[in-house]
């Protein structure tokens, strides 16, 4: 039913094609936001966010600090209610009822746990609050991690606490796993371990994953789909494969502009040369330009810079009017 609606809205698009607004055709959406906004007091933490995240991916939500990643994810799990617009997750309203809550696993930023409770207590807590709880899997995971179930959560290292939080989120057997900056505070080794673990879970349980990060390197390792969120808007979204196949770096002499069918994301001009990061369906054949592939990090940074510039321009225009 959901599939029909999405196909109907975006006919004829190739699956996974990168789009400016993040609308991606085909497959079912795990998350759809439409004009979504959240205001705290007078400050908009997220405004006019429209995006669709397809199912069956490990999705990286990347953006600078303050872009609204945490707000978007908290809206998706129903921890906060939207001020404007709508958000649907797996076709339902976030936190609408026990059934909807059971379908979404969530690991919050800084992986909160009860410091005074032991790991075993946390597993009992999970068993009592989740009707689809898989206690055996949870215990097995704790064992594999080499953790003592009698250990208090307050005494765990950051990495161990993150693993406990992931265990709780996974053992409820969700269809979608949402993680908010799960590795931001971990050392490189714990970070690598956690992400490897996460990939294993995603593959074993065939669960869709959305995780946010402000570090592109993390995403490159585990994600196959990226959403760039900056100034609370989706800058670009698509599979990493597609993003890399449709973005190029062009270097040319002089101050010329690249061919018109190329969309300039980032421009860097000196007196002698001009360098552009552009988006195009195919590599430009113009011999006047040197064409090079770009890395994911370059693409993401280019979009973030562009958004930043646009934001500055908007602010400047607003100031000029005032």
């Amino acid at each position: 039913m959901n599939d029909e609606r999405i196909r109907g809205e975006a006919p004829g698009r190739v699956q996974g094609a990168p789009t400016r607004d993040g609308q991606s055709a085909g497959g079912s959406a795990v998350l759809r936001a439409d004009g979504l906004g959240k205001r705290y007091g007078r400050r908009w933490a997220l405004s006019d966010c429209t995006l669709t995240i397809p199912a069956g991916h490990v999705v990286g939500l990347v953006g600078p600090n303050g872009a609204g990643k945490t707000t978007l994810l908290q809206l998706a799990v129903g921890l906060v209610a939207p001020t404007a617009g709508t958000v649907t997750v797996l076709g339902g309203r976030p936190a609408e009822g026990p059934a909807q809550l059971a379908r979404v696993g969530f690991v919050a930023q800084d992986t909160p746990t009860y410091a005074g409770l032991s790991i075993a207590d946390h597993l009992r807590f999970g068993a009592r609050l989740n009707h689809r709880w898989d206690g055996d899997a949870a215990r097995r995971r704790i064992e594999q991690l080499g953790l003592d179930p009698r250990q208090r959560a307050g005494k765990l290292s950051g990495g161990q606490r993150a693993q406990l939080a992931l265990t709780l989120a996974v053992a409820k057997r969700p269809e979608l796993l949402i993680l908010d900056e799960p590795v931001a505070s971990l050392d490189p080794l714990a970070r690598r371990e956690f992400l490897a673990n996460l990939l294993e879970v995603a593959a074993d349980q065939r669960v869709s994953v959305v995780l946010s990060s402000h570090l592109v390197a993390d995403l490159d390792r585990v994600c196959d789909y990226v959403v760039v969120l900056a100034t609370s808007r989706v800058q670009v979204a698509g599979t990493i494969e597609t993003l890399l196949a449709t973005h190029f770096r062009l270097t040319g002499t002089g101050r010329g502009e690249p061919p018109a069918d190329q969309q300039i994301i980032e421009a860097h001009r000196t007196a002698r040369t001009s360098t552009f990061v552009v988006r195009a369906d195919a590599a430009p054949g113009d011999p006047a330009w040197t064409v090079e592939p770009v890395t994911l990090e370059e693409v993401v940074l280019a979009y973030m810079k562009q958004a930043h510039g646009a934001g500055d321009e908007r602010a400047a225009r607003a100031e000029a009017r005032a």
Binding site: P98, V104, G105
Partner: peptide
Amino acid sequence: EDGTYRLAWTQSVTRTRW
């Protein structure tokens, strides 16, 4: 205060029931 509400309220029980 401790932020554990983000753990408690995302289990399969509505926060009202919790």
